[in-house]
Amino acid sequence: MSATSAPRHIEAFAHAAGSVAAGVPGGATGWHGTLLNIHIAPAASYEMEELTEAHCVAGRGIEGDRYFLGTGTYSPKPDTREVTLIEQEVLDALARNDPPLQGGPIQLAPIDHRRNLTVRGVPLNHLVGRRFRVGEVILRGGRLNFPCKYLEELLGQPVYLPLYNRSGLNCGIERGGIIRPGDPITLLD
């Protein structure tokens, strides 16, 4: 693993999705969310490790994470993935087999889903093209995350279809800083 190969990220609002969405009004407002868990993986296919505190670096990612280091599975493809988020509500839905798309309930623990931040009370699907705050850090929603077959293979669980259209959000970091579980998440604009 080499920390010198700086990852090629597309700035969130320069992404094909984020750039369009930023100019379109609407979306949920008035919500107040919370950061529940922070996970990073040191390299592609390494198990995620939980952090009690993480350093976010603008334009780059979470210190120690595969997409910060440029060692992720998708690192060779430039994209917006400085930080990835998923809703705890989606994990709860999978756990109650809702909707019943697969054999039964799926327990997808925060350590297993391979997104960096697990959040509660945050309508991620409404945040493409939006700026929002996680503690002292400011994130920009670049594009919706899309489930990949790779995750299904890694986990050996049929999560592809159940995560379809609720797989979270890929963000860029506008302003870096330290984040911790429990940090409030609020919309900026």
């Binding site: 390299a43 296919s45 390494y46 198990e47 490790e49 790779y150 293979e153 890694l154 986990l155």
Partner: peptide
């Protein structure tokens, strides 16, 4: 084809 998660044990 398959990739497997690596753990630090």
């Amino acid at each position: 084809m398959s990739t497997r998660i690596v753990m630090k044990l």
